[in-house]
Amino acid sequence: MILTLEWDALLIARILAKAVTYYACLAAIGTVLFRVLHKAAAHEQKRFLCTWLRMSAVVALAATASAWALDVQWLFGDLMAVLQDRAMLAVSLQSDFGNAVLIRALGLLLLLWPGWNRTGHLIQFGGALLVLFSFTLVGHTVKEPRYLMGAGILIHLAALAYWIGGLAPIFRAPRIMGAQQGGRLVEGFGRNAVIAVGAAVVTGSLLIWGITGRFLLPTTSAYENFLVLKLLAFSGVMLLAGLNKLVLTPRLVEGQSKAARSLRISIVFEASIIAFVLFAIAAATTVGWP
């Protein structure tokens, strides 16, 4: 259905806004999780992580607002009329998607809280939880058993967010922290990332079971097959990337320049794969499948 669909400007804009929302939200959440799990390394890159968190949150806010506005335009045909009519505006914001947008926006605003101290970190952590929670209000997680599906998507997205949030500081680590400290950080991140992939696979499988009633191919529709293939392909790539980091660690500690270069290439590859998968998910959830 996606290949035969007439791709107009509004549809493309809706998909792009949703994909950017996914990536920027997960990057912001992941930055908070990285700071929690790697305190010493986070302190070494304090200024960069503050800037990265704020930039991710701002982009996520803009993309979230754009996604809402574009969906309103698609549903009602006139965004300005909705903005000028309180009743129509209330209808658009009281839907599941509207509630998700409001909660997500609140969480993102909390992520912009200034200060590198305990209070600021707690507020930002609460914001990250709100952003995560907002994703349980829409999509397949509203199906029964809703609490189980919601918990599954929370763990699934948290694992993915940790990976995405760690890519930027890991990319800079050998240059900023030195060979030994950078190597230890890459090793610790690689170990945690393998666990995160495992958590993503388990929860992803449970979510697919909740949606389709089965774990394995073939399922009853192209969309369900897409979910399974997406999980398998993405998990395989991420697992290999995590193992690659563990292999690179001894070479990084020894100060081999080629190891640092290989690490940067690996991170660029991972970021590209993640962006492609999130775009594919955005397209599939926007246009639907037969």
Rank of each mutant, 00 (worst) to 15 (best):
H43N: 14
L110P: 06
P145W: 00
E144I: 12
E144H: 11
R54C: 03
K18I: 14
N117Q: 12
Q124G: 12
L106D: 08
S95M: 06
C50F: 13
L33G: 08
R54V: 03
N117A: 12
P114Q: 00
A100V: 05
L16G: 02
L53Q: 01
I103C: 10
G127K: 01
L61I: 08
K143F: 03
G77M: 05
T21N: 09
A42W: 03
D71S: 10
V101G: 05
R118V: 05
L83C: 10
T136S: 14
S95L: 04
K143L: 09
L89P: 03
N117D: 15
V20W: 04
L110S: 07
A28I: 01
W52L: 14
P114H: 00
M55A: 15
L93M: 11
V101I: 15
G107D: 13
N99W: 13
G120D: 05
L93D: 13
D78R: 00
T21M: 09
L70V: 04
A62E: 11
W74S: 14
A27Y: 00
T21V: 07
W68D: 11
M80G: 09
V131T: 10
T136M: 07
T141Y: 09
A60H: 07
T119V: 13
A67V: 08
G127N: 06
M80D: 13
Y23W: 13
V72N: 04
